[in-house]
Simulated assay, not measured.
Amino acid sequence: MSLQSLKPKITNILSSTTIDTEDKMTQVCEVLQNSISYYDWVGFYFANETEKTLHLKAFAGEPTDHTVIPFGKGICGQVAVSNQNFVVEDVKAQDNYIACSIYVKAEIVIPLFKDGKNIGQIDIDSHTIDPFTKEDETFLEWVNKQVAEIL
Rank of each mutant, 00 (worst) to 15 (best):
I10H: 07
P131L: 03
L6P: 09
A60N: 04
L32R: 09
M25W: 15
L112N: 00
P111E: 11
D123Q: 07
I102W: 02
D95C: 00
T67C: 01
V143A: 03
T50H: 01
W142Q: 05
G120E: 05
E62D: 13
Q146I: 08
V31F: 06
K9A: 14
Y103N: 06
Q27A: 12
E22T: 15
L14Q: 12
Y103Q: 05
F44Q: 08
K73L: 14
S82N: 08
P131H: 03
N144Y: 04
Q121N: 01
V147H: 10
K73W: 11
V68I: 15
G72P: 02
A148E: 05
E137V: 10
Y39R: 03
N144E: 07
I108V: 14
N85T: 07
E51N: 13
S5Q: 02
F132W: 11
T133C: 04
E137T: 08
F139W: 02
L32F: 14
T18E: 15
E89R: 07
N118Q: 07
A58Y: 05
K9P: 02
Y39A: 08
K105Q: 13
L140A: 00
C100L: 12
H66Q: 12
I150W: 04
E107L: 02
F44A: 07
F139N: 03
T18F: 11
S126N: 06
Q84F: 01
I102S: 11
I124Y: 05
F113W: 04
N96L: 03
A80N: 02
K105A: 11
S2Q: 10
A148P: 03
L112M: 15
N118K: 00
K134I: 08
T128A: 06
E62K: 04
Y45V: 06
D23I: 15
Q33D: 12
K114E: 10
E141P: 00
